[in-house]
């Protein structure tokens, strides 16, 4: 499974990347901004995108909207990986067309499994 992580925080990208590759056995691509993420999503055609919500210039909402609008990425499942945990914010993220929302800080031992569960749930719905 190929996963694209879009997060402006270098450390979180590294940790999530290591987690998904070493624990989850996934191929990981990284992007440090919404714009770079959209470009890599089009070029690399990942199976799933892990997207941070609060990013400068182009935040998670704008990024997912752009991904949904682009024919090459419109169907790619997007999971928000976010520090926002308030119910209303989570609902809003789901309403943007996300396959699910995972909250920070995540547990590296379970993250890849949670991603797979959300993908399975999303494809079954």
């Amino acid at each position: 499974m190929k996963v694209l992580i879009i997060d402006d925080d270098d450390d979180i990208r590294s940790i999530a990347g290591l987690t998904l590759s070493r624990v989850g056995g996934m191929d990981v691509i990284q992007a440090a901004s919404g714009a770079e993420g959209i470009r890599k999503a089009c070029d690399e055609n990942p199976d799933v995108i892990l997207l941070d919500m609060m990013m400068p210039v182009m935040d998670g909402s704008e990024t997912i909207t752009a991904l949904r609008a682009h024919p090459a990425t419109a169907a790619t499942p997007v999971i928000f990986l976010t520090a926002k945990t308030v119910g209303a914010e989570v609902e809003r993220m789901n309403s943007l067309g996300a396959a699910g929302v995972l909250t920070k800080p995540f547990d590296p031992r379970t993250l890849s499994e949670e991603v797979r569960i959300l993908l399975k749930r999303s494809s079954g719905s």
């Binding site: 979180i12 940790i15 987690t19 920070k104 800080p105 995540f106 590296p108 031992r109």
Partner: peptide, 11 residues
């Protein structure tokens, strides 16, 4: 920052 700390420790 806690995400990075917890993630590193978990790994």
């Amino acid at each position: 920052p806690l995400t990075s700390i917890r993630g590193s420790l978990g790994l």
